[in-house]
Nucleic acid binder design. Sequence first.
DNA 1: CCCGATTCCTGTAGGC
DNA 2: TGCCTACAGGAATCGG
Length: 271
Amino acid sequence: MPELPEVETTRRGIAPRLTGATVTGVIVRERRMRWPVPAAIEARLCGQIVKAVERRAKYLLLRTGTGTAMVHLGMSGTLRFVTPGTTPGKHDHVDIETDADCVLRFNDPRRFGCLLWTDGNPLEHPLLARLGPEPLGAGFTGAFLHAASRGRRIAIKPHLMNAAIVVGVGNIYASESLFRAGIHPGRAAGRISLQRMTRLSEAVKSVLQESIRYGGTTLRDFYNGAGKPGYFRNELQVYGRTGEACIRCRHPIRQVLLGQRSTFYCPRCQT
DNA sequence: CCCGATTCCTGTAGGC
DNA sequence: TGCCTACAGGAATCGG
């Protein structure tokens, strides 16, 4: 999926045209997603003005006067604008029609994404209530990461990908951040010093910020609201570079499985 | 509680 | 070309 930079890129792409627009229609062609699209979503959303398009973790929040639509892109989801009347293709599961002469189209081949509705505070929704801090926020520091890792024997990479610890860091950016911080992805989270955790928290922030500037990473099927790919793929230093020379020491990049996920690192630079 | 494995789904790349 | 397997950016859930 889209990790945090891709979701943020999507948010920035759709927010200008969506904010202030009135939803004039909702078409759901497929309700079987990660969770079923609520039967009431059409009635709740129609006629509402989108007051703001926000992001919490990897969820996009379309706030209206009466409630909030929550969108998660899963592994393969995209949101993009199409002109009214555009014939839907395969996996175009939901259209949100607006009076801004555009239709927000939700496509998701693998259907790991979701579209939910909440009447209350979305931040208190069960899926959002217990999440860790935003990685780009002030609450995510080396001290926080260090404290949240005491006594943990889990490898730092899956630890970093645990949304209860910190949100938004998926498989690509976990590998990239650990490389930049010089930390071995298999090292036990509880055995990393405060100094190195500070380096790691700063690496996470800089990698995510840099990726957002590039419009995210497109491996195969991520496109922003305008249908354009992200260009951070060219800036990846270890992800997908198995066998290539490390940019720092020229040692071949190694690929291993960690927590059932492909993990890329330099065995010489990362300890 | 912690942690690793499994699961949901489709598309694609690679081996033969 | 076709068939088969493995794997893909997420994350809830289950079981040890």
